[in-house]
Design a protein around this nucleic acid. Structure first.
Lengths: 211, 211
DNA sequence: TATATTCGGTAATCCAAATTACCATCCGAA
DNA sequence: TTCGGATGGTAATTTGGATTACCGAATATA
């Protein structure tokens, strides 16, 4: 039996539609990271994007409706990846010691986000203030990250390492602190060894929680 | 003797050129704050700006070359104003107690920046990632603000209230923490009383310095 | 192998918005 | 009160770039 038109599995050039689309998408994502962080998001033209991704102008609209959607995808992807790693690591670590837990949280997070200096640039500079949708997505992630920190703080409080109190705003401030460090780092990556950035983040978080 | 053409004092409509220009400029700045924070920087058209400022399209180019310059002016103006207040207040306060000094620093800063929720929105959301020039200006201000915090930390260390160490990165992280709090606040101003934000900022700064 | 169909590239099309040219108006000086 | 020059508004111009229409090439099926 023949595969009907539009069938996702219908292969073409030996490659099924599904995969071709996925590959195109990946190439566009890669081009997005590259151009958004060098040329700048706003300054990047769809055409340039396609050229960098090795496809024609048309290919873009096959995968995304707008440039903003590509940026949303990138922003979300980086956060999600880091978040998965971090929460997985924290779950695996069945230790209650705050210092150890926060240390791991920061190390894993930083490893994910600083693996490529373009990532913090993309998420903390280029993706800011672009559109209401992006601000919403930013807010969501701030919520998730701060909830994670808040959780650790609460746990520390429960085990007596930290005072019992509401850590909500503290967690938000700490997310801001990390963001600030990374924004500085991406601007002057040469000046700061990643380890120093991570160390500072840990220290500030611990100080604020166990204050 | 008659005033030559182009003389800045040459009055027109009873108002000297200098003042007319200053007033136009002010109206454009006000329109910029309003539109950049409601419509969004990128989405704001020069024409809208002029309409809001009660002048014709042409008036804009009389005072600024580009929309970006208007944004640069606004960004700088808010920082400068806050900075003047803060450094003046700190100089006037001849007390060495860190808690008191940081408390004042934060109070004065927050009073200046939170007087209008649009200001943090403008400086911490709309003005981010707009252009290399704006990033440069941002970096400069981060440098000034963190230097101020670093100075207080050093002073605290000198008086034995804080450990002696390099506070450079800590200060940068703390600037980020304040920025993060304000960015959250401007997005959900209704949820957080300004005093809570200020209190949290103070607490985090003190904890990080005296850790 | 022939044919219907899908894919992807090229090249218009179309639009929005910055920039500028031009004109009517207004002012100050003689 | 008349003239030269400045001022600011209106409206055309132009450009940059997103979006789309169309076409040839390539593929799978009968």
């Amino acid at each position: 039996m023949a595969r009907a038109a539009g069938d996702p599995e219908r292969s073409y050039g030996g490659v099924p539609l599904t995969r071709r689309r996925a590959e195109r998408r990946d190439r566009l994502l890669a081009a997005g990271v590259e151009l958004f962080t060098s040329v700048g998001y706003q300054q990047t033209k769809i055409t340039e994007l396609c050229a960098a991704a090795g496809m024609s102008n048309r290919g873009f609209y096959q995968e995304f409706d707008t440039k903003e959607q590509l940026l949303l995808a990138l922003h979300s992807r980086t956060n999600q990846l880091a978040y998965d790693h971090v929460s997985q690591a924290l779950t695996a670590l069945d230790v209650v010691d705050v210092q150890a837990r926060v240390g791991l949280l920061v190390d894993v997070f930083m490893a994910a986000v600083m693996s490529d200096p373009r990532l913090p640039r993309l998420n903390y500079v280029e993706a800011v203030g672009v559109s209401p949708a992006l601000e919403r997505q930013h807010e969501e992630w701030v919520g998730r990250w701060s909830a994670l920190i808040e959780q650790e703080a609460d746990q520390a409080a429960a085990s007596g390492t930290a005072p019992r109190r509401d850590f909500h705003l503290t967690a938000i401030a700490l997310v801001g602190a990390i963001t600030g460090l990374l924004r500085e780092w991406q601007a002057h990556a040469a000046h700061y060894p990643p380890a120093e950035i991570a160390a500072e983040a840990k220290a500030v978080i611990l100080a604020a929680i166990t204050r």
